[in-house]
Design a protein around this nucleic acid. Structure first.
Lengths: 168, 168
DNA sequence: TATTGTTATACTCTATAACTATA
DNA sequence: TATAGTTATAGAGTATAACAATA
């Protein structure tokens, strides 16, 4: 229980604790927000990656797996697994395109559309929970600042970078 | 190249694209910031998890692996692997505690201290890059808002939630 | 030949559980 | 018996590369 000290190279004494900067706070609070959202949609049997794909299909129905792979910055084989899961849960269907039978047109099923509606409700409650420490003015301010950063860094609206693996 | 359409359950037409809320933007920009930071420290041969452990040891030298595991919210066996790596790179040393030979006192080596200094330089540049779209006033505003959320949600200062696995 | 999607495989990360040594 | 740390193992997630079908 007691923390003993021992001679070591670092020891003049502990490093002064610096206040965290905006970038670290962004990563910290962002990861926290993502984890809380993951908890919420877990009750729908989904993980965050599923939610993102579902939303991308809802936003632009009929798109191909390739287009999904490009926008997400992942390899096509991963999209196969992602869509496989959503299809097996009955949320998404692969429709053959008669003009070019190589690709699929992805669509939500009726169930998928219902799940999307529930997800929006969960997202709204999530939003309120995360911003609970702020008043309405501050909340709008925060949104504006984050939008400015996202725009300046060239982040695609609505695309979470969490799909990509380690190197970029 | 042309996106064809196909009859499907979702189709009245595409969902209206909603503006992202603060919570999604937080997760998006936060993950982006984390990824950019990972790129930077990659040149030191480190990944974000290493950086966090290094900083925690620097902040409180002599602490045990157990205390690290608790604060990070991970299982002790994972700390073994984390510290193993840092020790093999010569950044951290395990000192036996003569009073209680069960636990180790973790310390930075001289090299470890140097790496910490370089990390601070990288973090500073990273900070500037992420906030490049904001002026100084906005940057301070953002920091304040994020601190408010972190405090309200009970986030431990300086502890990134990214260590924990999926459930919580 | 080029493109879309799939399968097979290997690799990385992480938790679980059993274990050693010390107390 | 309890605690700090370790090892062995298994599972999940993801990329790579070879492949099949279609153009």
């Amino acid at each position: 229980m007691t923390a003993q000290r021992q001679a070591g190279h670092d020891d003049g004494w502990a490093q002064r604790v610096r206040p965290a900067g905006a970038a670290f706070l962004l990563a910290q609070v962002g990861a926290y927000a993502a984890a809380r959202f993951a908890e919420r949609i877990n009750e729908l049997g989904l993980i965050p990656a599923d939610a993102g794909v579902l939303r991308m299909i809802a936003t632009r129905p009929g798109r191909s797996q390739q287009s999904l792979a490009e926008e997400l910055g992942v390899v096509p084989s991963r999209v196969v697994a992602l869509v496989d899961k959503l299809e097996s849960k009955g949320l998404v269907e692969r429709l053959r395109n008669p003009q070019d039978r190589r690709n699929y047109a992805l669509h939500l099923t009726a169930t998928g559309t219902q799940i999307m509606a529930r997800m929006r409700g969960l997202a709204s409650a999530h939003e309120d929970q995360i911003c609970a420490g702020l008043d309405d003015t501050q909340r709008a301010q925060l949104t504006g600042l984050l939008e400015a950063i996202a725009a300046h860094q060239g982040l695609a609206p609505g695309v979470h970078p969490g799909y990509q693996q380690r190197p970029r």
